[in-house]
């Protein structure tokens, strides 16, 4: 169970850290505690899966960790820097370089091709068009979509779109990739594609925080945290053997 009274700062190896984070909406009788006192440390290269039923606050937590939203109370540290009190401009700059997002609904720009979608964060970060395009093509190759670069999202399958979204999230080599229900809109086959991709990223040492209510995603995680009613209720560390067994169960092996 999570110790909500932990007030120590981030550890040396933590790339992402939350201390006593709360997020409330409304007041009085209408008060909703979306996140209710969460402490979390994510080490470099670690994959953490946060699971729980719909409405338990998983996505809200992810938004707070990724500087898309500000907590009502508490501290959030990212790459050694406290972010909960930063202004919008600083947060945006942070999102360019330290955070990559993968959304359930993909959120690709419909009028941009796959390669143009992937290069967008690099362009926003001020990279030259040539460097951004080169990086984009490398990433598409990495996710197995080298030949789909010129295609619009409408011409891609669900799994392919999500892989483009993953490639986009990696565009600026972020410190952490945050994935919000990455397989929520995918069929079984596409889910396995994306799970393989996350597994590959994990093996490559990318730090990942994945929010999901799909147990299969646990096959790629080092830690599995259960969340309910805005709080962490359980945490399980997964050994290498356990992960392999789970991976075989969901078809990641072989």
């Amino acid at each position: 169970m999570t110790d909500t009274t932990d007030t120590s700062g981030p550890t040396d190896t933590a790339v992402l850290c939350a201390r006593g984070v709360h997020k409330h909406y409304g007041t009085g009788a209408g008060l909703v505690r979306a996140v209710d006192g969460v402490d979390l440390d994510v080490r470099r290269g670690e994959t953490v899966a946060v699971m729980g039923p719909s409405g338990c606050g998983k996505s809200t937590l992810l938004h707070l960790l990724g500087a898309l939203d500000r907590p009502s109370r508490g501290e959030v540290w990212l790459a050694g820097r406290r972010i909960d009190a930063l202004g919008e401009t600083a947060l945006a700059q942070l999102r360019r370089t330290d955070v990559g997002f993968v959304f359930q609904a993909f959120h690709l720009m419909e009028e941009l091709t796959a390669v143009e979608n992937v290069e967008l964060p690099a362009l926003l970060a001020g990279r030259s068009p040539r460097a951004a395009r080169r990086r984009s093509e490398e990433l598409l190759d990495q996710v197995g979509l080298a030949d789909r670069g010129p295609f619009l999202p409408a011409a891609l399958s669900g799994g392919q779109r999500q892989r483009v979204a993953v490639a986009r999230a990696l565009s600026n080599e972020p410190a952490v990739v945050l994935a919000d229900e990455p397989t929520g809109n995918l069929d079984s086959a596409a889910t396995v594609e994306v799970l393989r991709l996350f597994d590959d990223l994990h093996r490559a040492g990318q730090t990942l925080v994945v929010v999901t209510h799909d147990e299969r995603i646990a096959a790629t995680a080092d830690r599995l945290i259960s969340m309910r009613d805005g709080s962490f209720v359980d945490e399980i560390g997964l050994t290498g053997g356990t992960r392999r067994d789970l991976g075989a169960l969901v078809g990641l092996e072989g």
């Binding site: 898309l68 919008e88 401009t89 945006a92 700059q93 999102r95 360019r96 370089t97 997002f101 959120h107 720009m109 967008l120 964060p121 926003l124 970060a125 986009r168 600026n172």
Partner: peptide, 13 residues
């Protein structure tokens, strides 16, 4: 949507 996405990817307000 496009503006929100651009901000999520690092564009400032």
């Amino acid at each position: 949507h496009a503006s929100a996405l651009a901000r999520a990817l690092g564009a400032t307000p």
